[in-house]
Amino acid sequence: MRRPVLAFLADQQRWEAWRAPVLAALAERGIKAELRFGAETPEEVDYILYAPTAARVDFSTFTRARAVLNLWAGVEGIVTDPSLTQPLCRMVDTSLVTGMVEYVTGHVLRHHLGMDRHVLGQDGIWRGREVPPLAADRSVGVLGLGELGAACAGALASLGFRVTGWSRRCRSLAGITCLDGTAGLDALVSQAEILVLLLPLTPATEGLIGAGVLARARPGVVLINPGRGGLIEDSALIAALDEGRVGHATLDAFREEPLPPEHPFWHHSKVTVTPHIAAATRPETAARVLAENIRRGEAGEPFLHLVDRAAGY
């Protein structure tokens, strides 16, 4: 029986990090496959393991390929590619979810407790009367209730926060007030004291957090964006920070990465920049997701985490 051929389309550094975990995950499932770096003969490839940082790929040359398996959760860099006709699967991995929950929970608690005043403000002033409210008295909004957003909303609710979530499609989650539509978005941003952005980047969400939404937001809102940089209109956010309508922005994703040294986010006193570390894909666990989809493809079973090409995620 012919062994399936896997083409790893990413940079050399990722190849070195992923090669052994992918081979180990395949072996765990008894899959004998040939794993190649690059694709000099695309017509021989059965599965494409793809990182969005790879060079431009003409997917139409992969005439045998049964699926493109994305190494990251985000697919905005590939989903609109006209040469892509194969099924596209995004990465959904427990470590990715856990990392995002830890990042979001940590920064929500940081802002909720006002920790910056104490950690950064060692100025000899005793601020004993500045006691934060309890979580039950704090409103947190989560935009995006997919795999990551739902997990983060649930973790925050378990700590006692009053959590409201919004998604383009109506959802129902235990312990979370779920809203959708334009009216739901307006209601959420008008009352949330801390706003977490975990929406996918699609034509419908591009620049969603712009002047209009920020004008309707609760004064002094804290914005946390570990999702996609394109969700925010940078100039509108800077203006809202300068005017005091936004109290602080903690940003992990940006329109251009790495964020250029001259970008105003680096130099604004009300902005915290983190270098896209909220939810890294970890090869040791994510390789098992890839291997399972390859097993499914070989067995003629439905793929996991298929992307809805029309919706963009």
Rank of each mutant, 00 (worst) to 15 (best):
G184Q: 12
G184T: 08
G184L: 11
L185C: 07
A187G: 13
A187E: 15
V189T: 10
S190I: 02
S190W: 06
S190T: 11
Q191M: 14
Q191D: 14
A192E: 10
E193T: 04
E193N: 04
I194W: 04
I194R: 03
L195V: 13
V196N: 12
V196W: 08
L198G: 06
L198M: 13
L198K: 04
P200N: 09
P200Q: 12
P200C: 14
T202K: 10
T202E: 07
P203L: 13
P203V: 14
P203K: 09
G207I: 06
G207P: 01
I209C: 13
I209R: 07
I209N: 06
I209K: 01
G210M: 14
A211C: 11
A211W: 03
G212F: 01
G212W: 04
V213D: 01
A215F: 09
A217P: 01
R218K: 15
V221N: 05
V221K: 04
V222P: 02
L223H: 05
L223D: 10
N225F: 03
N225W: 02
P226R: 06
G227W: 05
R228T: 01
R228Q: 01
R228C: 06
L231G: 02
I232E: 02
E233W: 08
S235C: 09
A236M: 10
A236V: 12
L237Q: 10
L237M: 13
A239Q: 14
L241Y: 02
D242M: 11
E243H: 13
R245N: 13
R245L: 12
G247D: 09
G247Y: 04
H248R: 14
H248E: 09
A249W: 04
D252L: 07
F254H: 00
F254V: 01
E256I: 13
P258R: 00
P258F: 06
P258V: 01
P261S: 12
E262S: 14
E262D: 14
P264Y: 08
F265L: 08
F265C: 03
W266K: 07
H267S: 15
S269A: 15
K270I: 00
K270D: 13
K270S: 15
T272V: 05
P275M: 09
H276G: 08
A278Q: 10
A278S: 15
A279C: 10
A280N: 12
A280D: 12
T281M: 09
T281W: 10
P283E: 06
P283K: 08
E284K: 10
E284F: 08
T285F: 09
A287M: 02
A287V: 00
A287W: 00
R288W: 08
R288Q: 13
